[in-house]
C-alpha cells in the first residue's frame, strides 16, 4: 500500500511538472531549449533557498527526473563544495555533482550518433 502511494505521488507530481512545461509552451511559444533552461533555473533556485530537499523527500522521482532535479544537484553540489573547499568549490561543485548525467548524455549521444542516421518525419 505504501509503495502504491509513493508511486501515485511520483506520477502525479512528475506529470504536473511536465504539464507546467507544456503550459509554458502553449502560452509563450517557447522552444524546447528555453523550456529546459527555465526548469534548470527553477531547480537551482529551489535548492538554493533550501526547499528542494523537502519536495524531493516527498515526491522522489517526481521532481528528480524532471530537469528541475538536474538544476538542484548543480546547486547542491556547489553548496557542498563551498563548505568543504571554500572559494574553489564555487567553480568545481556544480559540474562535479552533475558530471555523471552530462558525461552520460555526451557519451551516449556520441555512440548513437555513430550508429544511427536521422529519420524523416512522417
Amino acid at each position: 500500500m505504501d509503495i502504491f502511494l509513493t508511486y501515485l505521488i511520483v506520477f502525479l507530481i512528475g506529470g504536473f511538472v511536465c504539464m507546467l512545461g507544456e503550459l509554458l509552451i502553449i502560452t509563450t511559444n517557447m522552444t524546447s531549449a528555453r523550456i529546459l533552461v527555465t526548469f534548470v533555473l527553477i531547480g537551482v533556485f529551489l535548492e538554493a533557498v533550501g526547499v528542494f530537499d523537502y519536495i524531493s523527500d516527498f515526491a522522489k522521482a517526481g521532481i528528480n527526473v524532471p530537469i528541475v532535479g538536474f538544476g538542484a544537484s548543480l546547486a547542491k553540489g556547489v553548496i557542498g563544495a563551498v563548505e568543504s573547499q571554500g572559494l574553489l568549490g564555487v567553480f568545481t561543485g556544480g559540474l562535479t555533482a552533475t558530471a555523471g548525467g552530462i558525461a552520460a548524455a555526451i557519451g551516449f549521444a556520441f555512440l548513437f550518433a555513430l550508429i544511427f542516421k536521422s529519420h524523416t518525419k512522417k
Binding site: G15, V17, C18, M19, G21, I35, L36, P66, I67, A105
Partner: peptide
C-alpha cells in the same frame, strides 16, 4: 510535448 521535454530524457 512538454511531457517528454521537461524530464531528463528530454535533455538527453
Amino acid at each position: 510535448g512538454g511531457g517528454s521535454i521537461v524530464p531528463i530524457t528530454g535533455f538527453s
